[in-house]
Design a protein around this nucleic acid. Sequence first.
DNA 1: ACCAAAATAAATAACGTTGTCAAATTATCA
DNA 2: TGATAATTTGACAACGTTATTTATTTTGGT
Lengths: 335, 335
Amino acid sequence: MVTIKQVAEVAGVSFKTVSRVVNKEPGVKPQNIEKVEQAIKQLGYRPNRAASLVRKKQTGIIGFISDEISTTPASVAILKGAQDMAWEQGKTLMVFNLDPKKPNKDKLYEECLQHRAEGIIYGAMYHQAVTFSNIFKSLPTVLVNCISTSNDFLSIVPDDEQAGYYVTKQLLSKGYRRIAFLNLNPDIIAAQQRQKGFLKALDEFGLAKSDYHIATIEKVVNNKTINITRDVAADVLTSFKPDAVLCGKDLAAINLYFEIERLGLTVGKDIGVASFDNWHDIPEILDPQLSTMALPYYEMGRLAISKLLSLKTSPPESDQSVYKMACLLCDRQSF
Amino acid sequence: MVTIKQVAEVAGVSFKTVSRVVNKEPGVKPQNIEKVEQAIKQLGYRPNRAASLVRKKQTGIIGFISDEISTTPASVAILKGAQDMAWEQGKTLMVFNLDPKKPNKDKLYEECLQHRAEGIIYGAMYHQAVTFSNIFKSLPTVLVNCISTSNDFLSIVPDDEQAGYYVTKQLLSKGYRRIAFLNLNPDIIAAQQRQKGFLKALDEFGLAKSDYHIATIEKVVNNKTINITRDVAADVLTSFKPDAVLCGKDLAAINLYFEIERLGLTVGKDIGVASFDNWHDIPEILDPQLSTMALPYYEMGRLAISKLLSLKTSPPESDQSVYKMACLLCDRQSF
DNA sequence: ACCAAAATAAATAACGTTGTCAAATTATCA
DNA sequence: TGATAATTTGACAACGTTATTTATTTTGGT
């Protein structure tokens, strides 16, 4: 590998001058800049990042630890957002995935510390509460899509209550008055908060208890979540006879569409359907295309990085705060 | 940050001894190991990776450059596989995503070079041919899910021909004799190779031209691919009247299911359905669950790393070779 | 043309490690 | 016990940079 000194020799200047040119420091004669750049090109020199990091205080590295996040399609966007923002800020993201078999956050954190990361982003697969050991206090840390059980980190989550509230209000304002909510497993935060928003919107429109129905489309058997949308939907559609259905996730909306079609009804005409996720290509592949609340994963990833970077400059006065990011309705044809 | 010398001082040994303990080099008295480990724990010392990298020749860093890959759910698995294998081999993956707006592979490669990566994995979103500049020759490089237009890199791709062949043979051996193939855009490699396999299997079973039908479910209008499965499926189902349909991707199989249901037929009973991808939760959410050829992304990611590492030791005699990885049928209930 | 001030360049220290080799200590055996 | 070999330790150079200080060159004003 060619070093800064070899470049200096070829360019006929001291190696410090080369360093100045490489780092775009001022105070080098244009003529010398020219010579150095020539030599760099000629030799194919590339700065050795590691060597530079030894001397500089700032490494420009941000650790991204994910609880399996980057394999789940819905939230890959978090990573992408973080990566884009990091790149814009001249930082490099180092990505680590937790091993689902034995998830050891601390080991990965250790790795980040050794690389002298300047901060850590921890991303979770779904909106949940996570417990962190004290080692996580070593660096500025921002949580994405989860909160800390001990509430001691800045975290960025989707505003599921707002999402539930907003989409319900949209349904109501379009005239739907008999709404079924096929919610996710009630143990998860998103399900709880969406339901809160759902009820709030109904309340504002003065709907009675008999005008809505809430059911659960997930069942947990020995720690595995299984999807029972098809049966639940069939039941709710025939017994409650809603004029609109709000579905906990786009994937389950597929099942819902089938059940609606089976009853000879048409989505978007006889019955409105709305959902949550905006899960990649699913909403668009359905017919009619599914109107769904997009979870702002990409933006959450971006915000995580910028919050992290500002954490480092400003004192962590505002720790333990939770940023709830608004969800947007992707308005298509299903209601 | 605490350094090796501070640890040495506390432990009452030379800093070289600490270095030996940290790197588990032999020849340190157990008693001193104990003292050093004590001091390390007491001070919370962590080796500075950058400093170590300056001195050592091996950085243990592998660059992973992806053409948007890590945002597409189907192939996130490549990244995961690569990451797992890299971790097992004691390497660290540095992940870079191409900016879809202005995809500049070379810039990311440059970044990898500066980090003194020992090798590069380039992953593509779908099986395609990609052109690389000469800068990619600087390091051992392995391509995943794509081949080089100039055929000068080792690459790892799914064996789409085998996949098409295998699944068709399965259909045939279950007695289906009138098969429609709803293929992807014929411009892409996967579509071409699967079709080849499809035809080969049909030929082996001696099927006539009138016993099968091939249609395209994607249309390209101003560089954007649009999905026309619904219309094509409706047409093929009524005009050709297949007893089985092989679908180009799981997502499109959703459309196909709808059309089949609309005709009053039942998947898996009146008509067999098979597909390609094993795209996350889709095959399981469909009813009946979809039998589909899984693309071996995870394994491709793993193989990429191990091939890369062996490239470095053995001379690149076997360059320009293409590893085609067999696809497995995920046998469910749709045929 | 000369001097001071400003601009530029060079020399050298420093960063936190690992590699080399010589020195010190301990173990082995006659 | 003494000599020798084996083990363990430490001093110091080296890695490729950036930071700091010092030296040199250029510029501007008289």
